[in-house]
């Protein structure tokens, strides 16, 4: 299953451990994380499920293209990285 790793900066606010969750799209993988960590959801996506403006998601070394729909493909052996963007200050 894909492995999701979060920026260590999130640890200031809440527990965000690396998790292995199923899913073929970024949105499905993140939904699997949020099912286990409900409070984490609003830190990563906005009210409408879009990636927050100052959060970046990479599949392996590639930044995702679909920030609103989170439809970028994820393979079982991929790693998904959730970082804060430097644009956020």
């Amino acid at each position: 299953m894909p492995r999701v790793t979060f920026t260590a900066n999130l640890q200031r606010h809440l527990d965000a451990p690396s998790l292995e969750v199923g899913g073929a799209r970024v949105g499905e993988v993140l939904a699997g994380v949020f099912a286990q960590k409900p409070l984490l959801r609003s830190y990563i996506v906005d009210d409408q499920g879009r990636l927050r403006r100052h959060v970046n998601v990479f599949v392996n070394a590639t930044m995702i293209a679909d920030r609103d729909g989170l439809s970028d493909a994820v393979r079982p052996d991929d790693e998904v990285f959730v970082f804060q963007a430097l644009s956020g200050g």
Binding site: H13, S42, D46, R52, H54, V55, Q84, G89
Partner: peptide, 8 residues
């Protein structure tokens, strides 16, 4: 108002 992570 977290700069990266939204309103909390």
């Amino acid at each position: 108002n977290l700069g990266h992570f939204g309103a909390k």
